[in-house]
Amino acid sequence: MEERLWTKKYLFSLLLVFGVNMGYALLNSVMAIYGSVLTSSSVVGGYMITVFTLSALFIRLFIKKLNEKINNKNLLIIGLLLT
């Protein structure tokens, strides 16, 4: 018996990943506009996006080990408090 690929769970996961990535892309564009409004320089917007991207990449190195020690609910609460 063959398994179906396009199941309800798969489509929901696909839409969820699309939404998260779209949110990240929109955040980058809004951050560039916000940085240029604050200082009237587009360079500052670029710096803000660079720092945000590098910090996201740096955190991803350690989040797996932290996720193994702390459950998802507590990790999300900690992230919310840090934000």
Results as ranks from 00 to 15, higher is better:
68 E>N: 08
5 L>M: 11
58 F>Q: 13
66 L>F: 12
49 I>C: 06
16 L>I: 02
77 I>S: 04
24 Y>G: 07
23 G>C: 01
12 F>L: 03
9 K>V: 04
80 L>C: 11
36 S>Y: 00
44 V>E: 10
5 L>T: 08
61 L>S: 13
25 A>N: 04
83 T>N: 14
79 G>A: 11
80 L>W: 12
54 L>R: 11
59 I>D: 07
29 S>W: 12
18 F>V: 02
31 M>T: 07
70 I>T: 08
83 T>L: 09
55 S>I: 15
62 F>S: 13
7 T>K: 05
34 Y>D: 09
33 I>E: 11
44 V>H: 00
61 L>R: 14
82 L>V: 15
31 M>L: 15
76 L>T: 03
9 K>T: 04
6 W>M: 09
62 F>H: 09
6 W>G: 02
27 L>D: 05
50 T>H: 02
81 L>V: 14
7 T>F: 08
63 I>G: 10
81 L>P: 06
26 L>S: 06
70 I>C: 02
82 L>Y: 13
6 W>T: 03
7 T>M: 05
46 G>Q: 01
38 L>N: 01
46 G>M: 00
58 F>Y: 12
36 S>G: 02
76 L>H: 02
3 E>Q: 14
57 L>G: 14
5 L>C: 08
55 S>H: 10
4 R>D: 14
23 G>W: 00
8 K>R: 11
75 L>Y: 02
1 M>A: 15
19 G>Q: 03
12 F>P: 00
61 L>D: 05
29 S>F: 14
45 G>I: 00
5 L>D: 09
28 N>T: 08
51 V>E: 09
45 G>C: 00
25 A>T: 01
73 K>C: 01
3 E>C: 15
50 T>Q: 05
17 V>T: 06
33 I>K: 06
52 F>G: 07
11 L>S: 05
55 S>K: 06
82 L>D: 05
81 L>S: 05
25 A>L: 09
1 M>E: 14
42 S>H: 07
76 L>F: 06
8 K>T: 08
13 S>V: 06
24 Y>S: 09
56 A>W: 10
50 T>D: 09
79 G>Y: 01
56 A>P: 03
66 L>E: 12
2 E>D: 15
49 I>L: 08
31 M>K: 01
7 T>W: 12
41 S>I: 04
53 T>D: 12
18 F>E: 04
55 S>G: 12
51 V>R: 00
42 S>N: 03
70 I>Q: 04
30 V>I: 13
10 Y>W: 13
82 L>P: 11
77 I>G: 02
41 S>H: 09
73 K>M: 03
33 I>A: 04
74 N>T: 10
33 I>D: 07
65 K>P: 14
74 N>G: 03
63 I>E: 11
10 Y>D: 12
82 L>N: 12
38 L>A: 14
62 F>P: 07
67 N>K: 04
34 Y>F: 06
63 I>K: 13
12 F>Y: 06
13 S>N: 08
58 F>L: 13
49 I>K: 02
30 V>A: 11
2 E>M: 15
16 L>T: 07
44 V>S: 09
12 F>K: 05
11 L>A: 06
17 V>M: 05
60 R>W: 07
28 N>A: 07
83 T>S: 14
19 G>C: 11
12 F>R: 02
61 L>M: 15
28 N>D: 10
21 N>V: 01
80 L>Q: 07
63 I>Y: 08
40 S>T: 10
